[in-house]
């Protein structure tokens, strides 16, 4: 998200359409290819053992050989991420609405939510396994505690940043608190909420993998852990690659959602 404005800075003048897209992506693609080639060369020249740093070609071989297992694990992890992400967004929004609408409840809840944010939630994973077993539930729970906070916080920030004179305008004609909430505050918070949702999408991937590390019999996190005990480092890297692809996919899905939900919002990341 942050690399695109940087690219814009290095562009002397606006280039239109396909050319603009190519010229903004090309340097990154070239750098990536050069890195892969250097990596491959370094591993071969210094004959580094493949269980310490596998060459890109080894990783690719492993990816092809274990394709079936890896795909099955990817589907499991993707399911956890999607489910956990949706639960986080729903809970996060509900919490923000309750905090804003019911003042006394908000004053009770908000400090506790912030306090809870300081708990290292990754450390909760073993407890969730203890409580909910090895299935889907502990992963959803872990994603929820990791990912709801940016949703709640960004929506609260959006709802509370409504201009005072706009509020006095609607107050002067006798608007009810519910009217102000749903006609002004909630729509006004959407651009900010969508930014928080994108962060939650990224955190959901982390939550799922950590959940699988703590105890699972399936999924990419499980593959990574299992492969590393077998010293099958190429497989570890292959699984890592797929986790990264999942992360990118979820991030861009959230960004597409943003464009659908708030087409009127000012664009921060225009290529």
């Amino acid at each position: 998200m942050s690399e695109q404005p940087l690219m814009n800075l290095s562009q002397p003048q606006p280039v239109s359409g396909w050319n603009a897209a190519t010229s903004s992506w090309l340097p990154a693609v070239i750098l990536l290819l050069v890195t892969i080639v250097l990596w491959e060369a370094a591993v071969r020249i210094f004959s580094i053992s493949s269980f310490i740093v596998p060459a890109p070609s080894e990783i690719a071989k492993s990816l092809v050989a274990q394709w079936g297992t890896l795909m099955q694990a990817t589907v499991v992890t993707a399911g956890e991420i999607l489910f956990g992400f949706l639960v986080s967004v729903i809970v996060g929004i509900a919490l923000a609405l309750v905090i804003v609408r019911f003042d006394w409840l908000g004053r009770a809840l908000y400090p506790l939510v912030v306090l809870f944010q300081n708990v290292p939630k990754v450390a909760l994973a073993p407890i969730f396994i203890l409580w909910f077993g090895y299935g889907l539930a502990p992963k959803i729970g872990l994603i929820l505690v990791i990912a709801f906070f940016p949703v709640t916080l960004s929506m609260l920030a959006g709802m509370q940043s409504v201009d005072r004179s706009l509020l006095s305008l609607v107050n002067s004609v006798g608007a009810s608190p519910t009217q102000i909430l749903f006609r002004i505050r909630v729509p006004h918070s959407l651009p900010s909420l969508m930014a928080g949702t994108k962060i939650a999408a990224t955190l959901s991937v982390i939550g799922a993998i950590v959940g699988e590390f703590a105890g699972a019999s399936d999924g990419l996190g499980y593959v990574i852990q299992f492969a590393s005990t077998q010293l099958d480092t190429p497989l570890v890297f292959a699984a890592l690659l797929l986790v990264s692809v999942l992360g990118i996919a979820f991030y861009y899905a959230a960004e597409i959602l943003e464009r659908i939900v708030v087409p009127w919002a000012p664009k921060f990341s225009q290529a």
């Binding site: 201009d163 004179s165 006095s168 002067s172 006798g174 729509p187 708030v262 009127w264």
Partner: peptide, 19 residues
């Protein structure tokens, strides 16, 4: 008077709803 819609307010900032 405001609640009876007898007062119309205009500020320096138009404060329109962007959506």
């Amino acid at each position: 008077a405001a609640r009876k819609r007898m007062i119309g307010l205009v500020f320096q900032d138009a404060n329109l709803l962007p959506w």
